[in-house]
Design a protein around this nucleic acid. Structure first.
Length: 504
RNA sequence: GGUCCAUUCGUCUAGUGGCUAGGACGUCAGGUUUUCAUCCUGGUAACAGGGGUUCGAUUCCCCUAUGGACUACCA
């Protein structure tokens, strides 16, 4: 069996969509599973759509995901260049070979002429296709006399090279995911292989490059399935052995119909791209939204594939081990932002408190709040299980850092009794007398005092929480006061008594 | 319109010629937490429809419906 060599071949036309990331991931998993090579090839044959920064974005995205490129524009390799615009002469040569073999021809029809033919056909309710039925009446090296078309070439008249689609032939081929497929060549058209601007089209560049790079398996999106017959034919014309093909199902929008788009993300508030895209119309990224790459990759891997077991949590290593292309689904998967969050929650719970403390410290630093790691680590331990993202820590712990400015009116209404201020004043002096201000001592002491006095424990504790936190939320109250300290606790009781007294 | 592809709980999916059709996310209920969240337990919920083949079809075949991709000198 020949060595496994696969490629991910995006065009640098903007940020990489998560569907593209998944294609890259599956290619990578497949390669590593079989001890093969993962290649990143840039398909920039459309000069008009080139976007500055897209190449960098693609490489950074893969890197963030932990998808390591073995050969590519940055990494180099023996099968370069890995950017198609750097080898257009090679493609021109191969297009020429095809013409010599009689499987392709020069065509001189202008885009305007073709557009008009299309419009006319449409008016009559037909679809115009450039193939054997019409090519004889159009302006090309098949219909023109040889001296005439050679003259046109000499004169420098713009031309394209088209593939000469064979007549009425049933093509059979196999897809690793979809199985056997049959297509008749009469439904296909004479696709342009080489453009008048001197660049190959995707079809030519793709086949030539895959051959030159000794690609063994082509794993790509379902949108390429319709052009598979052409690609298979091209391999045949060149006399090359074709790689094996696998066409991946699409990623669909969470609701409604159609494939996932940037608009869905904007509309429903989740990112559709791995990283923030800073150019032009900016786009949110999973990285900047606080997702861990491990969670992102885990979530993406399970969208369209599963191992057949009930395991849902996978490291990259485990994915490589478990992956098999045969278990990739045929039908498209709806993307579920809720499940994405759940994955991140899981990965965060399994992260070290110390690590999380460092991440949260960065977050606080941006807010101008500075705390030592030991103190923060203790805090993380108190609220960790409540959050899915590091940025969530703030909304769970803001009252640790800042005394409440307002107090929840609902809680006041329900829990604030006429005797409450007096009880809190007593509580204050009880706390004041505690030297060892740790959770177990304060809890014991306070509860003993309540019991002693015969107070309603619920009423006192809720009022206590209200003046410390400002609302009915947060971890164990004695953990909170231990963290903020005796002095701050007493201050908050004082402040709470007066302010809430006015509001009540 | 044409060509090709697809269809199991709301979502991601497992699975079989005969099963109580399994799991996860979500959702709902209960418990824990004298708060909120987490967590735990339990519940809800699916084989698109119609024909065949068969003793028996969710599973195999055909048709219909629905959805999708492609139909550029874009990839």
């Amino acid at each position: 069996m020949q060595p496994v060599r696969v490629r991910f071949a995006p065009s640098p036309t903007g940020p990489l969509h998560i569907g593209g990331v998944r294609t890259a991931l599956y290619n990578y998993l497949f390669a590593k599973k079989h001890g093969g090579i993962f290649i990143l090839r840039i398909e920039d044959t459309d000069q008009t759509r080139f976007v500055e920064g897209a190449e960098e974005y693609i490489m950074e995205s893969l890197k963030w995901c932990g998808i390591n490129v073995d050969e590519g524009i940055k990494e180099g390799g023996k099968h370069g260049p890995y950017r198609q615009s750097d080898k257009k002469d090679i493609f021109r040569q191969y297009a020429g070979t095809l013409v010599e073999k009689g499987d392709a021809y020069f065509a001189f029809d202008t885009p305007e002429q073709l557009e008009k033919l299309r419009m006319d056909s449409e008016k009559n309710g037909n679809t115009f296709i450039y193939n054997s039925s019409v090519r004889g009446e159009l302006k090309n090296s098949l219909s023109l006399k040889e001296t005439d078309w050679r003259n046109l070439l000499l004169q420098g008249v713009p031309y394209v090279i088209r593939y000469k689609m064979p007549l009425n032939e049933d093509l059979h081929f196999d897809d690793m995911i979809r199985g056997h497929i049959v297509v008749n060549t009469d439904t296909l058209d004479d696709k342009v292989l080489f453009k008048s601007d001197g660049m190959p089209t995707y079809h030519l560049a793709n086949i030539v490059d895959d051959h030159l790079m000794e690609i063994s398996h082509v794993i790509r999106g379902e949108e390429w399935l319709p052009s598979l017959p052409l690609h298979v034919l091209l391999y045949r014309s060149f006399g090359w052995r074709a790689p094996l093909f696998a066409h991946l199902p699409l990623l669909l929008k969470p609701d409604g119909k159609g494939k996932l788009s940037k608009r869905d993300g904007d509309r429903m508030g989740f990112p559709v791209f791995p990283l923030f895209w800073p150019y032009g119309e900016t786009a949110k990224g999973y990285r900047e939204e606080g997702y861990y790459p491990e969670a992102f990759v885990n979530m993406l891997a399970l969208l369209g594939w599963n191992p057949g077991t009930e395991q849902e949590i996978f490291s990259m290593e485990e994915l490589i081990d478990a992956f098999s292309i045969e278990r990739v689904h045929k039908s498209g998967s709806r993307f579920d932002p809720e499940k994405a969050k759940w994955f991140n929650h899981y990965y965060l719970q399994n992260r070290d408190n110390n690590q999380l403390a460092m991440e949260f410290r960065e977050f606080l630093r941006a807010k101008g709040i500075h705390y030592d790691i030991v103190h923060l680590e203790k805090l993380i331990g108190l609220v960790k299980e409540r959050v899915s993202f590091v940025k969530d820590f703030w909304q769970e712990t803001d009252f640790f850092f800042v005394a409440p400015e307002t107090y929840d009116r609902e809680v006041i209404k329900k829990k604030w009794k006429p005797e409450t201020p007096l009880q809190l004043t007593e509580l204050k002096s009880v706390l004041e007398n505690i030297d060892e201000f740790n959770p177990s001592v304060t809890e014991q002491t306070v509860k003993a005092w309540i019991e002693n006095k015969g107070y309603n424990i619920g009423a006192v504790m809720n009022a206590f929480r209200l003046v410390v936190v400002g609302a009915s939320r947060g971890p164990h109250i004695f953990d909170i006061i231990s963290w903020i300290g005796k002095e701050e606790t007493l201050k908050r009781i004082d402040k709470g008594i007066s302010i809430t007294g006015e509001q009540a």
